[in-house]
Simulated assay, not measured.
Amino acid sequence: MVTGGASGAPRRIAVVQPEAACFDTATAVDRVVAGTLEAAGKGAGLVVFPEAYIGGYPWGLAFGTAVGGRSAAGRRAWQRYHESAIAVPGPETERLGEAAAEAGVVLAVGVVERDTTYSGGTLFCTLLYFGPDGRLLGKHRKLKPTAAERLVWGEGDGSTLPVFDTAVGRVGGLICWENYMPLARMAMYGEGVEIYLAPTADARPRWQSTLQHIALEGRCYVVGCNQYVTRDMYPSDLELAHELDAWPDTLCIGGSAIYGPMGDCLAGPLEGEAGMLFADVDPGEIVRSRFDFDVTGHYARPDVFRFEVDRRPHPPVSSRT
């Protein structure tokens, strides 16, 4: 049953576009805490941070790899990246939950998650959700890392495709190029998402067209969130820093933005600097936008198209007794 933000007063979304804290988990957590409290002080009920912000999105790094080969230096750099990732739950998630509770907001944060259930050696690109009581509501693991991301991240499964009923509305989302997966988007629409989060590392102008399309297709608010990154934000002693030599000084200009359910740009895109964006959610606008197009309602054709989502976890090892 779809409930949530179908009526009531407008609610405020905050997008935080921070400077990167590459390979510096403590600083990244500090910035999320500070940004959350600042956004809440400006009236936000939902605060969103970028893809892989805690743990770091490793722009420009190949970790010493080539087809058919890996280097010892690359393995050491990978170990450092692995040590920058966080356990979920763990001490970092406890602190993030405390910040959400102090601010009284729903908090969504992109992290690099270190698997603690099966192997301990696999990382996931994960979106964490915290409630205004500080509870870890759940997480989404990226289903399909893109291109060279497959070197460093594993694949999530359908057990982490949540949409949460909150005071701001029904909140859920996908990470970066997962948003080009039509069936993944349909899974979100099928859960009645009203505020669709799309944290990303894609700063290209054409990404704005993607955000706008999702808003029009899902008739929902769409929140794009990225970070601002320059080469000098990497540690000076990073193994394989020479892999960045071919890259520009600015690795990511940002491009965070918020779109309304009729495709209007409500805030942003914010480019070339760190900062915050805000937009008010009008639940009535969601209803009005679905008058002529409702992707899982009167515009669906279940007699023609069938779609199932396997929401079971798929552990690598199962035991029977």
Score class of each variant (00 low, 15 high):
G297P: 08
R306G: 09
L277N: 03
M276I: 06
E271N: 09
H298A: 12
D294K: 12
S256F: 04
L251S: 06
Y299D: 15
D282T: 00
W247N: 10
V281G: 00
I253D: 12
A257Y: 05
R301E: 14
M262R: 13
R306N: 00
C252L: 12
F278D: 04
I253W: 10
A267I: 03
L270F: 03
D294G: 12
G297Y: 11
H298P: 06
V281Q: 00
G268C: 07
G268V: 08
V287A: 12
T296K: 13
V304C: 08
F291Y: 14
C252A: 14
P248N: 11
Y259D: 02
F278C: 01
A257D: 02
D294A: 15
L270D: 05
E271L: 10
I253L: 14
F293N: 07
G284P: 06
R301V: 13
R290N: 08
G297M: 10
A279C: 07
G260M: 00
F291T: 15
E271K: 14
R306P: 00
R306Y: 07
A274F: 04
D292C: 13
L277S: 01
D292A: 15
P302I: 10
E285N: 07
D280N: 04
D264L: 09
A257F: 06
G263W: 08
D282E: 10
I258M: 05
V281S: 02
D292F: 15
G254W: 06
P261R: 01
V304A: 11
F278Q: 02
Y259T: 08
Y299C: 15
D303V: 01
A279K: 00
V287H: 06
A246V: 12
G297F: 10
Y299W: 13
H298I: 09
V295G: 11
I286Q: 01
